[in-house]
Amino acid sequence: MTVSNHHWRRFKNGFMQTLTCACAMLVVTPLVLVFYHLLHEGFTSLNWAFFTQLPKAVGETGGGMANAIAGTFILLGQAALVGVPVGVLGGVFLSEYGSSRLNWAIRFAADTLNGVPSITWGIVVYALVVVPMHGPSALAGGIVLGMMMIPLVMRTTEEVLQLVPTGYREAALALGIAKWKMIVRIVVRTALKGIVTGALLALARVAGETAPLLFTAFGNLGWAHSLKEPIAAMPLLIFNYAISPYDDWHRQAWAGAFVLLMLVLAINVGVRFLTRDRYRRNS
């Protein structure tokens, strides 16, 4: 062991530490840049009209995204109606019933479903809903987002249910309560915060989806008067404005992107506080 060998090893250690640190910084850079530009271009283009008015025709300046903001929430509401019950009950099955082999297969299928490209979901629901209904509709948009939520909600529900101590279940059953009541009143209720967290994260994830909505919700420059009509959504309108050649529409797209990102990040960050609270109390 010479001294120079020792120095060489110390140098290598420091070098790799710096190199991996540089990797981490480089990974974070795009996020910082995206934030910077959204704040710079998006926040400055925001005004009251953006939230209250309909989009204006080409050439007219001003206008807003009121219909798209409302549309996104309507789509998310429908998606939650489809995705949350199916996902939560499926998660209950994975955690509380079933054989290990069947559950392995279900988990595997759910994870595979998570990897299905969003554009594929779009054309599938087009064939399934839009074609029979003779046109794109808010309903089709809600269904596609809801279907995409199912595997997400199922896996997170299962995860949080398994955090509930087995002793709770045994104690409840020992008191003679029926198993389904034990699950609903004890297990699900104990894990409720985690289940809500999972559902919100799944909603945040589909809130930004554009590709599945291209052929299903389709977009609408005005208000949709029923769920059978095409409906506007923020990601769709951002996309349409983004690929347009007009400066004013680009400004609107920045403002829309800013609001959409704030919505998605607010859910993500808010949920983090919710779960942090839970772990603190448990420990």
Binding site: V27, V28, P30, H37, G208, T210, P235, A242, L261
Partner: peptide
Amino acid sequence: LIMFIELLAAVPSVILGFWGMSV
């Protein structure tokens, strides 16, 4: 750092695309 990276994962595709085409 972990939180930042998770936030990056949450940025919708269309926003990243818009940033990509204009910046």
